[in-house]
């Protein structure tokens, strides 16, 4: 019984993760400019990948495999914001102007 509940939960996590991955992919294609696409990539890195890995953790039970999966989760959680931040900063310094809703006034600091 407990086994089945764990299985169901893990499949729900894996399928949910797959759904958010595809949503992130669609967003990456659909959103209008680079900075908005950054948010779609955020969905892939946080919700999609973590849910799927959580499902794998439930499937694996408690062993060395779990430790490795948790290390991957931790690593993605720490590196994905760093990479996103580095990308945004590099794009802004590289002269890419974000498309803004409020019009042209972006109070950007010294460059």
């Amino acid at each position: 019984m407990l086994e089945m509940a764990r299985d169901l939960l893990s499949w729900a996590f894996i399928l949910g993760g797959g759904f958010f991955l595809i949503v992130g992919g669609i967003g990456l294609l659909r959103l209008p400019d680079f900075f908005t696409r950054l948010h779609a990539a955020g969905i892939i890195d946080t919700m999609g990948a973590e849910l799927m890995l959580a499902g794998f953790v439930l499937q694996a039970g408690f062993s060395l495999v779990t430790v490795k999966l948790l290390l991957i989760v931790l690593f993605i959680m720490f590196t994905s914001p760093t990479a996103a931040h580095a990308l945004a900063k590099a794009a802004l310094h590289g002269g890419y102007k974000p498309r803004l809703a409020t019009g042209g006034d972006d109070d950007r600091g010294s460059d």
Binding site: H39, G42, T46, F78, S80, H85, A88, K89, L92
Partner: peptide, 13 residues
């Protein structure tokens, strides 16, 4: 990093 980790907001600088 918390700001960036939350989708919808990205810390640039």
């Amino acid at each position: 990093n918390s700001i960036t980790l939350t989708p919808g907001t990205v810390a640039i600088d």
